[in-house]
């Protein structure tokens, strides 16, 4: 690894990374607080105070059942983050396994894996996720599973390409020559060297996963009422959007800001970690 300023300092010097990272940290913190503490019970109906405009009583207004929108967004934050994190973790794990075996083993393993991946890529990932949830049944967990599985092909291809790049490099050959087992070679030398692009892709992928998860919940396939998942909130509110703009605007904004934070962070990380870009900055 090239010597230089510490990773943290480099991140801090990068504007998008700092901005995205800070925003994300705030969101994560809010999500953690929202798990426990919210101004109102997020599922408590208060019909006489339904559709209250944003104000002193309800910061972001109340919905058609009189539930406090701010409390719901806060309480639902961890769900969106969880969807993003779990599904990407799943996709990265799957992608690593498949990509490494395809890239490292080559031959018929490579052929089989890549044809499978081609098959999956033939479907738009949202469609694939939709299909999986339709089969597995609507639930938050199934959404994570579906989004994760649907994003495996991207990671697999990326990992495989990276493996192919490093496979022929002298230090891998050296490792082999020293008698390392293939697993050791992969674990000690291949994976660390393909980690950088993987981190960038995973960060950007988390944003996409949150968006897809919200979309599936919007379609009624994800979080079930009264869970205040953001996509589900949008879906419930759309029938009442003519009665109060705040019903749809704030959950939408919450999704937008989170995705923005992750995208910014991802962009910044790419600038930092991409060796070609790094030298030119």
């Amino acid at each position: 690894m090239p010597a230089g300023p510490s990773v943290l300092r480099r991140i801090l010097r990068n504007r998008s990374a700092t901005f995205g990272g800070t925003l994300l940290a705030i969101i994560v913190l809010a999500a953690l607080i929202g798990l426990r503490f919210t101004p109102y019970d997020p599922v408590l109906m208060d019909v006489p105070n339904r559709l209250a405009e944003p104000g002193a009583q309800h910061v972001l207004g109340s919905d058609h059942y009189g539930r406090d929108i701010f409390s719901r967004i806060l309480n639902g934050a961890h769900l969106s983050l969880l969807i993003g994190a779990v599904s990407v973790l799943l996709a990265v794990t799957g992608g690593l396994l498949l990509g490494l075996s395809a890239g490292f083993a080559g031959g018929w393993v490579d052929f089989l894996v890549m044809r499978l991946i081609d098959l999956m890529l033939a479907f738009p990932s949202v469609l694939l996720a939709l299909g999986i949830v339709a089969i597995a049944g609507p639930s938050l967990f199934n959404v994570m599973l579906a989004v994760g599985i649907a994003s495996i092909p991207t990671y697999t291809r990326m990992v495989r390409a990276s493996v192919l790049t490093v496979r022929g490099l002298p230090y891998i050959e050296a490792s082999r020559a020293l008698g390392s087992s293939p697993l050791r070679t992969i674990g000690r030398h291949v994976v660390p060297n393909i980690l950088a692009p993987l981190i960038v892709l995973a960060t950007l992928g988390t944003a996409g996963a949150i968006l897809t998860g919200a979309a599936l919940s919007f379609l009624g396939l994800g979080a079930q009422p009264p869970t205040p998942e953001w996509g589900a909130m949008l879906s419930e509110a759309r029938n009442y959007m003519r009665l109060g703009w705040w019903l749809t605007v704030f959950p939408g904004l919450a999704i937008g800001v989170t995705v923005l934070a992750l995208n910014q962070l991802g962009d910044g990380l790419r600038d930092l970690l991409d060796p070609y870009l790094r030298n030119t900055v």
């Binding site: 599922v43 408590l44 109906m45 058609h64 059942y65 009422p225 009264p226 419930e236």
Partner: peptide, 10 residues
């Protein structure tokens, strides 16, 4: 009919 069901739930 979801509102009916959600209200019943609550």
């Amino acid at each position: 009919y979801e509102p009916k069901v959600v209200a019943t739930q609550a």
